[in-house]
Each structure stands twice: as C-alpha cells, then as structure tokens.
C-alpha cells in the first residue's frame, strides 16, 4: 500500500470538510448540482473499478444503471400514480441495496458473455447488450410501463421523536446518502489499488496472458471486479430514480450514461482512486453552468471533451498535476 503522505492526508481532510459544508447551505440549486455530482462520481467510480483497474473498456454500464433504477422502482413500489406494473413493497432503503445487488448479478451474466471477447469486441458486445436491455424495457410494457416510464412519489420521512428527522422533501438527505455512496465506492477503489486482489487485477490489465501464466485467474478476477462495479452503478441508478422520481428506458439505458461514466473517469485519470471523483467534480458543475449560459447540453461537450482528452491529455488531469 502506498503510504498516505501528509500532503495527501491534509488534502483529503480539507476536501471532506468542504463536502460537508453544503449541508448548511440554503441554496436548493447548489445542493441539486452537488447531488448530481456525487451521483455521477459514484457512477464513474463504479466504472473505474472494471474499466480503470481491470482495463476492460465497457460501454454498457447503462445496463446496470437501468437495472438498478427499475429494480428500485419495482422493489419499493411507491409509484406516484396508479400503474399496472407489479411491485414488491419493500422499504426504499432495502430496495436501494437490493437494486445494487441485482445489478451486480446482471454484471455476472453480462461478464460471462462478454469477457470471452477482447479489446474492441468486448466494447461492442457490452454496448450491444445494453441496447438489447433498452429494447426489452421499452417493449415489456406489463412490467416496465414501456416508453412512458415510471413516476415515483417521495419516500416516507423518517421520524424518530426527539432524535432524528429525515425529511425527504428537502434535498439534504439525498446529498448525505449520495456522499456516503461515493465514499463507499472510493474506499473500494482504494482497496483495488493497494491489495493483492487489485495487484492481480492490474497485472491482468497489463498483460492478461502473462498474468494467466503466473497463475492469476483473469476471468474470475474480472467477474468479481465487474460484480462490484455493477453493484455501484446499480446503486447510482436506483438513487437517481429515488431522487429524480422519474425514469424511462431512454434516460437510464441510453448510451449517454455509459459514456458519461467513461468520460468522467478518463478526465480525472482512469485506474486511480480519485480520478473519477475529480472528473465528476470538475465536469458535472461545469456542464451545468454551460447548459445555463449557452443552452448547449452535456452530451455535445462530453463528445468534444472526450476527443480532447484522448488527443491532448492521455492519462487524465490527475496524472498531469501529480499530487
């Protein structure tokens, strides 16, 4: 494990304090942007686990995001209007975790199919499978409400007399939950970067044949990494549903989600602990400002950024500044 230098520790402490401050802010809009940022950071960190550390360029993470979101809808079932789609009626907290696990399981299925393929073929097959899921969720109207999408009501407030009130009509609880998700994903990423498991995974990224020759079970490692990666992506998808209270197959299964995960990670630095976080905290607010100022949506800028990153900034900003 690389020793945590004083400088890094000070930076970490300072940034965590800055992250807690907005809770006292009265600006709903600031909180909204921050919630989107920590959500995107969780998504990107999730992608980083398999795409960065495992070196498996997936363009299909929207599949896990979408499965997380729809699982969250069906497991919790607090729909805003009467809908003929089935629901289980669990607590939203349990549903959140279960959605992540279901997305992880989907990761195992997709991994079993796609890890047989290498390089560009892996990428194409993940993209194709996410598109297949989009078609299925658009057409299986009895279970998903099709293209109309799913509209949720606000989760019930949690009131423990004289102790805690978690009021979901405000944005603060969402921000706190988002922060916890992001921190959890980042702890896992730091485990990936400094454990035997992580070293083996990175060895298989560098040269899978050589790693295999040294007794590393490349397929097994990738499966575990994809499970964890899909878990966090699914968690992010479910959180998105509970926060925005609306999803449809275009929103959550679209290629935009997959690309966002890749761009944020690559911008920061792929395969590093803080790369995806830096990417999300720089790009998500920046795009929000751009959208307000000149009305150009995120995807256009993501496209240009990706070209620029590949051409001029290979390795991402974190590797350029070198903390």
């Amino acid at each position: 494990m690389s020793p945590l230098t004083n400088r890094k520790a000070a930076l970490l402490l300072a940034s965590s304090m800055i992250l807690i401050l907005p809770i006292f802010s009265r600006s709903e809009y600031l909180l909204h942007i921050l919630i989107l940022t920590v959500l995107s950071a969780t998504l990107a960190q999730g992608w980083n686990l398999i795409g960065g550390y495992g070196g498996q360029l997936s363009l299909g993470h929207a599949a896990f995001y979408g499965i997380g979101a729809y699982s969250g809808a069906v497991l919790y079932g607090g729909f805003a209007s009467t809908m003929s789609i089935p629901s289980v009626g669990l607590s939203p907290w349990v549903s959140l975790v279960l959605s992540g696990l279901l997305a992880g399981l989907a990761g195992l299925v997709i991994g079993a199919i796609c890890f047989r393929l290498k390089g560009p073929y892996f990428l194409i097959s993940t993209l194709a499978l996410a598109q297949v899921l989009q078609v299925i969720f658009l057409n299986a109207r009895e279970y998903t409400n099709g293209a109309v999408g799913v509209l949720m009501s606000s989760p019930p407030n949690i009131i423990i007399p004289n102790l805690v009130i978690i009021d979901f009509s405000t944005k603060i609880p969402y921000y706190v939950i988002g922060l916890i998700m992001m921190a959890f994903a980042t702890v896992i990423a730091s485990y990936f970067s400094s454990s035997r498991f992580g070293y083996r995974l990175m060895a298989s990224r560098a040269d899978s044949d050589a790693a295999e020759g040294l007794g590393v079970n490349v397929f097994g490692l990738n499966m575990v990494a994809l499970f964890v990666s899909a878990f966090f992506t699914g968690l992010a998808g479910c959180f998105y549903l509970y926060y925005m209270r609306f999803v449809d197959p275009f929103l959550v299964f679209g290629i935009g989600i997959s690309v966002q995960a890749v761009v944020l990670t690559y911008f920061g630095a792929s395969g590093t602990v803080f790369g995806p976080i830096v990417g999300a905290f720089v790009l998500v607010p920046m795009l929000e400002v751009l959208r307000l100022m000149i009305g150009i949506g995120g995807p256009l800028v993501y496209g240009i950024l990706l070209v620029i990153i590949v051409m001029a900034l290979p390795g991402g900003v974190l590797r350029k500044i070198k903390l």
Binding site: G55, L57, V263, P299, I304, V307, I309, V310, M311
Partner: peptide
Amino acid sequence: KRLSTAPSSSQVLFTVGLSLFLVNLAQF
C-alpha cells in the same frame, strides 16, 4: 492519423467522442 500509434482504447474512445459530438451537433 495522430492516433495510429495510440493504444486501441484511445482510438475507440476518440470515435465515441466523435459520435457524441456529431449526434449532438445535429440535434443542436
């Protein structure tokens, strides 16, 4: 041409960026 010696991941990501750019430019 500039990417001809770059790793294949950079090449693929470049075309993903180009794709996003063209789609959204058309939309705009």
